[in-house]
Amino acid sequence: MAPANLRQLPTLDNLKGFVAAARHLSFTKAALELSLSQSAVSRQVQGLEEQLGTALFLRTTRQLRLTPAGELLYRNASDMLARLAAVVDDIASAGQRPRVTVSASIGFSALWLVPRLSDFQGLHPDIGVRLSADNRRVDLEAEDVDVAIRYCTAVNAPAGSLKLFDEVLLPVASPALAASLPAGPALNGANLPSLTLLALEDGSDYPGLRWENWLDPLGLSATQAKGLLQFNHYDQCIAAALAGHGAALGRLPLIRDRLGEGRLVPLAPPRDSADGHGYYLLRAPGGQRPEVARFVAWLQAVATRESSADAIIPDHA
């Protein structure tokens, strides 16, 4: 094919204005797409028609229609611009680091994932991570998410998901609050009137996170507590416990490091969730990119290490 005479080709702006107008059969809609005024698009098309020496549109008071010459140019120009846009995207993306988009609940993100991301970045500095923290269950394909962490029972776990770890719970408080309790650091009838209960109340039905599961076996009621504070995000509940505002139901996978550091102390031995909830990893269909595989492998390795038999669970005093 002979090389094109670039001086004879229309300007790119005029071609873009024409293709947009031809796609919508409207100068107004083309102007909105290109963020231009209607008169600017009209001038682009008029300039193209003058250069080609032929009309590209039939203009009436009610509608815009392509002439045969306009239809021929639109078919070829739209295809050319689409291929040019694809090349530009490929060149631009080649200069960017690969990225993994992760969806997780706000509580899991704040308490577990964010503190550990520096470990992943140290191992894979060439891979970027975009964290989408949301308690809403996202559609991975529709919202361009590579990996999601789901909190659910095994029965409700999505097909193809992998369990990271089980839910394990225990009541916790700050060291200062625990030391001030009249009967020592324990959840019992003698201490309950001195405790404010910190509870998650976000509209979700998670029976295992209810205080009744701990109080009923002891013959106690939340009405006997000093007070009740409710939060719609779990990380707020733990922040209040760290600040000494009361006792929270600690989710061991999410607060293990705070227990290990002595920033929280247990008021009873840990036990598995009464309703069988756990944390599951779900990868988007077709998410086989190398950076996604590396992030998934890292996530599984950390989860296995932290839930292994030799992982430290602080003793209950």
Rank of each mutant, 00 (worst) to 15 (best):
A2L: 10
P3Q: 11
P3F: 09
N5I: 15
L6C: 03
Q8T: 13
L9N: 10
D13H: 13
A20K: 07
S26E: 03
K29C: 08
A30M: 04
L34V: 10
S37G: 15
S39I: 12
A40M: 03
S42H: 13
S42A: 02
R43C: 08
E50Q: 15
E50N: 06
L52K: 07
G53S: 12
G53P: 04
A55K: 08
L56I: 06
L58R: 00
R62G: 06
R62H: 03
Q63E: 14
Q63P: 00
T67G: 01
T67S: 00
G70K: 01
L72K: 02
L72G: 02
L73P: 01
R75Q: 10
R75F: 13
M80Y: 10
L81D: 12
A85Q: 09
S93N: 09
G95F: 01
Q96K: 14
R97W: 02
P98M: 02
R99P: 00
V102F: 06
I106G: 00
G107P: 05
V114C: 05
P115V: 13
R116W: 10
F120Q: 15
F120E: 04
Q121A: 15
Q121W: 12
L123Q: 10
R130C: 01
L131M: 15
R136I: 10
R136E: 13
R137E: 11
V138E: 07
V138R: 15
E143F: 04
R150V: 14
C152R: 04
T153W: 01
T153V: 01
A159Y: 14
L169S: 04
P171I: 05
P171F: 00
V172A: 11
V172T: 06
P175D: 13
P175W: 14
P182W: 05
G184C: 05
A186E: 03
L187H: 11
G189Y: 07
G189M: 00
A190N: 09
T196P: 06
T196Q: 04
L197C: 07
D202F: 00
G203A: 08
D205W: 05
P207R: 11
G208A: 15
W211Y: 03
W211I: 05
E212K: 09
W214F: 06
L215F: 03
P217R: 08
S221I: 12
A222F: 02
Q224K: 01
A225E: 03
A225I: 05
L229K: 13
F231W: 06
F231I: 11
F231S: 03
Y234G: 11
Y234W: 10
C237F: 04
A239H: 14
G246C: 03
R251D: 15
L252W: 03
L254H: 05
R256F: 07
L259H: 15
L264Y: 08
P269D: 08
D272R: 15
H277L: 14
G278L: 13
L281H: 13
L281C: 03
L282K: 11
P285Y: 09
P290D: 01
P290F: 02
E291M: 04
E291C: 02
A293D: 07
A297T: 09
V302R: 12
R305E: 10
S307K: 13
S307D: 08
A309G: 12
P314F: 07
A317F: 02
